[in-house]
Design a protein around this nucleic acid. Structure first.
Lengths: 340, 340
DNA sequence: CATGAGCCTTGAATCATTTCATCGACGAAT
DNA sequence: ATTCGTCGATGAAATGATTCAAGGCTCATG
């Protein structure tokens, strides 16, 4: 219980200078003579002084903390995005604090409230519910927001995402080039725009190759999880060979892993000989799956880094800021599961 | 750009009351007459007033934000812990903000600084480096800390973790009961106490069963990842049958998954007939692995929930608080990979 | 010796909120 | 009619850091 509360006042007294001088040492060290500066710094050390961010912020009016409201921390994609955001923030001497909404609308709003009350420098959000109204309010208060992995609701908001239509096209073009013709798209729920777009891209690729309109069949998943993938995998494996697709495009890698497990358990189905399989996201251990998994890679860290950069730029020049909606182009990573 | 800055003062003016009354509506609504309260609340709505947390905090001296400094957000274990912590925090009307140190000591310290400057209600931390000094300083400043998944450095800190020695014993007892005698422990680096303890528990179990001292062989891993598991799996599969272990205990599930992939690729090795395999953590999709994986389950959410509860209790009664070091007992989850 | 320039330092004002002693009004009891 | 008590509302003080106009000191120059 050494030093209960050490304030600038205490430091000033200890170093025999005034409050203002201590503040200058802290914020404009070049304005203070060497001798004084060193004396003050020694006192800071000695007393273990740490700025009270609340007081600083109250007066200065701006914070260096960026909030990131995330749909689901356990999704490796968001983890990667967060890492990228952290890197960009660090360059601007800002910090990123992650809040997990767990796909629950009321947590999402509660955390937006929190960041609003804290007058955060800005907020990154991958929204679950409809938060447009709330984001407008944050902006009115001078807190900019950038949407991550989601389209901007209006042209005066910035957003950073992957072009999922292009990703879907990429995956299915790859399968068609390998000679596959009966293609299953496994994914859901379609309420998620990411998944809708990937399916749309898949159909565009089939069209472009001159395949019939029903070449891409949609198998709906309740959730993008390995369990669902496994369930649907058994359904697919149970089909007779003539009816069975010869390629499966899964809406994300977790689904693909589940599918792979189910298909391989049914010894009749070989990957990629009987069914070529491709996922989406290229999560860390797609490459170390039982059959290394082909996938569509999103530049997750770059998405986070860019989103944070846009946010910081906007927070610097709030009024005259030109909003941007950025889409990154995903790339194909071909591995054994499509024949490498 | 509706309402630039709305303060209590504006609300007070609009509702025709004094500052103090608005504050009372906000903090002690029972002290204000119904008529006045409703009038004030209407003004708050109308003007879109949101408390300035910095000012509130500055005066009130206490915050309702708990910081959680995490070693690695991409590890599902920590994600689960965070979810539990959030649940306990929500009950006390507190929020949890996650900061990812990414196993980098300087980020860890930077985030501790941040929470110190913000005068957080408390800090949960799963430390990578040695942070004892820093935690002492936080306490001096009235910010309690609880260690998560790590032992308390001194009896006057609280900690919540799993009994990893018991977990190791559980895993290896299970293998021995199944008749296995040549057991490999795959895990590392031993610098992590979690992994050291699991190995120690494994050896205790072997001793207790009267097995020779070298019954449990240690295969060192550079990191607890699927890639490392795969690498070591190929080494193990390459051994002649007489030299090969008949059971493998992996220090975590990621390692176990990698091992499984490598062993199954070598067609000579069957799981569990030739080698029984058990992991640790029971992460979400251990059950949907190619061969459903036996594992030692830690009560991850409970750990987080308990840690947050201890933290909140300590922050309430700082001085007279009795610190606790809690250890949860893990449980065995037997699946196909050890013969179900 | 007086003056001015340059460089530091000072102290008061400010930020938005909470807290608390005080005040006013109204009704009940003496 | 006076006193007392209660309930609500009030406004000044306090919180800790920052900013800025004003003042002080030193040294060089006329």
């Amino acid at each position: 219980m050494a030093s209960q509360v050490v304030s600038v006042k205490d430091v000033a007294a200890h170093a025999n200078v005034s409050l203002g001088t201590v503040s200058n040492v802290l914020n404009r060290p070049e304005k203070v003579s060497d001798a004084t500066r060193e004396r003050v710094q020694a006192s800071i050390e000695r007393l273990g002084f740490v700025r009270n961010e609340s007081a600083r912020h109250l007066r200065a009016g701006q914070s260096k903390t960026i909030g990131f409201v995330v749909l689901d921390v356990s999704n490796p994609f968001f983890t990667d995005v967060a890492r990228g955001a952290e890197r960009a923030a660090a360059r601007a001497a800002s910090s990123v604090l992650i809040a997990n909404s767990g796909e629950r609308g009321e947590r999402e709003l509660a955390y937006l409230d929190l960041f609003e009350e804290q007058r955060a420098q800005g907020v990154l959000i991958s929204p679950g519910g409809n938060v447009t109204k709330r984001l407008e309010r944050l902006r009115d208060r001078g807190i900019p927001t950038v949407l991550v992995d989601s389209p901007a609701p209006r042209p005066d908001f910035s957003s950073v995402q992957t072009n999922d239509v292009a990703g879907g096209r990429l995956a299915v073009s790859h399968l068609i080039e390998l000679g596959r013709r009966r293609i299953a798209f496994v994914g859901g729920p379609l309420a998620l725009h990411q998944i809708r777009d990937r399916l749309a891209g898949a159909r565009l690729a089939a069209d472009a190759a001159g395949l019939p309109a029903d070449a891409v069949q949609h198998w709906d998943a309740q959730a993008p999880t390995a369990e669902e993938g496994k369930r649907l995998g058994f359904e697919i494996a149970a089909l007779r060979k003539q009816e069975r697709p010869d390629a499966v495009f899964a809406a994300n890698d977790l689904l693909a892993i589940g599918l792979m497990q189910a298909l391989l358990l049914e010894r009749r189905v070989r990957i990629p000989q009987d069914i070529a399989l491709i996922g989406y996201d290229d999560i860390g251990w797609a490459s170390s799956a039982f059959v290394p998994l082909s996938s569509i890679r999103q530049p997750s860290e770059l998405i986070g880094e860019t989103a944070a950069r846009l946010l910081i730029e906007e927070s610097a020049g709030m009024d005259a800021y030109e909003h941007q909606q950025l889409q990154f182009t995903p790339v194909l990573v071909a591995r054994d599961s499509t024949g490498g």
